[in-house]
Amino acid sequence: MSLRIAAIAALALAAPVAAQTAPAPGPADVELWRLDCGGVQVNDLNAFSDTLAYTGRTKRLVASCYLIRHGGDYMLWDAGLPEATIGAPVSKTDAMSPVLTTTIKRQLAQIGVAPEKIGRIGISHYHFDHTGQATGFPGATLLIGKGDFDALKAGKPGTSTEPLRPWFGGAGKSEPVEGDKDVFGDGSVTMLTMPGHTPGHHALLVRLKGRGPVLLSGDTAHFRENYDSNGVPPFNVDRAQSLASLARFKALAGNAKATVILQHEAADVAKLPAFPASAR
């Protein structure tokens, strides 16, 4: 055998071994920011109880959104109140009065993230305080529960495609999510089906290397007392599904030992570092 043939044969034998012993790529670095996406002054807290548990009570809710960096990819979770809300007076008589002082884009600019870098927008559900600034990111792929997607397309009562017009009637790419979805394919960010508040409502599980799992509620529950007592708002589309989703959410939180963030509860949102700091 010539030296040339012997060398080729040796390389051929070594190739499978090299392939078998090559180290697998490590998990992507994941980073999570909490964003200020507004608030809601609730002047009649019974708006969140179909058993009238909060008669005569008021509460200021926050409307939080979240930025997730997965390696070099960016995802926005929920899109807050519409920018047009900035400067609107707070009503002391309306059942609910929205409040907004800054925008998602302004906050992203503080950490050097251009809107064009947002590759995905995950929407927990179609309500206006979770979709309000989505149109500012028309190049992102919209991830939304299939039940909500179908309700929006059908124009069901309580829905509006206007806050999501790049993906409903525009050229934006959308992905209706049925069931759970492993967003990046490595288990680090998972949309969790939690129907009941809306037909396709989802929560989000983010696994951070240092801090551990963080469970973002969407509107599975709105505030801590509501969560602890399994309270159901009268405007939820399905009471039985709402209670089943609450049970699943709590079981997941316990089994994963996750930090629970109720997205409308200021004390829960404060568990994460104040922007522009992040959790990792």
Rank of each mutant, 00 (worst) to 15 (best):
M1V: 14
L3T: 13
R4N: 04
A6T: 13
A9F: 02
A9D: 03
A10C: 10
L11K: 05
P16R: 00
P16F: 01
A18N: 01
T21G: 11
P23D: 05
G26Q: 13
G26T: 14
P27Y: 00
A28C: 06
A28I: 12
D29Q: 12
E31N: 05
L32H: 09
L32T: 03
W33D: 00
V42W: 10
V42G: 06
D44G: 03
D44C: 02
A47P: 02
T51W: 12
R60Y: 05
A63P: 11
A63F: 01
Y66I: 06
Y66M: 01
I68V: 15
H70F: 09
H70V: 03
G72P: 12
M75S: 06
D78P: 12
A79N: 03
A84F: 00
A84H: 11
T85D: 11
T85I: 02
T93W: 02
S97Y: 02
T102H: 01
K105L: 13
R106F: 07
R106D: 15
Q110G: 04
Q110P: 01
Q110D: 08
G112H: 12
P115A: 12
K117Q: 13
I118L: 11
I121A: 13
Y126G: 15
H127M: 12
F128G: 15
D129E: 08
T131N: 11
Q133M: 06
G136D: 13
P138D: 13
T141I: 01
I144D: 03
K146I: 14
G147V: 08
D150R: 03
K153T: 15
K156T: 10
E162V: 12
G170S: 06
G170F: 00
K173A: 15
E175N: 14
V177Y: 08
E178P: 00
D180T: 03
V183D: 05
V183N: 08
V189E: 09
L192H: 02
T193P: 00
M194Q: 06
P195V: 08
G196N: 13
H197P: 09
T198F: 01
P199L: 08
H201F: 00
L204G: 06
L205Q: 05
V206D: 06
R207E: 09
K209N: 15
G210R: 00
P213L: 01
P213Y: 06
G218N: 04
D219T: 01
A221R: 15
R224D: 11
E225Q: 11
N226A: 07
N230I: 12
G231L: 01
P233F: 08
N236V: 03
V237R: 09
D238H: 07
R239P: 11
Q241V: 04
L243D: 01
L243G: 02
S245W: 08
A247V: 07
A251L: 07
A251G: 04
A251D: 04
A253V: 07
N255Q: 15
K257Q: 13
I261D: 05
L262E: 07
H264T: 04
A266N: 12
A266H: 08
A267F: 04
D268P: 15
F275I: 09
F275K: 10
S278P: 13
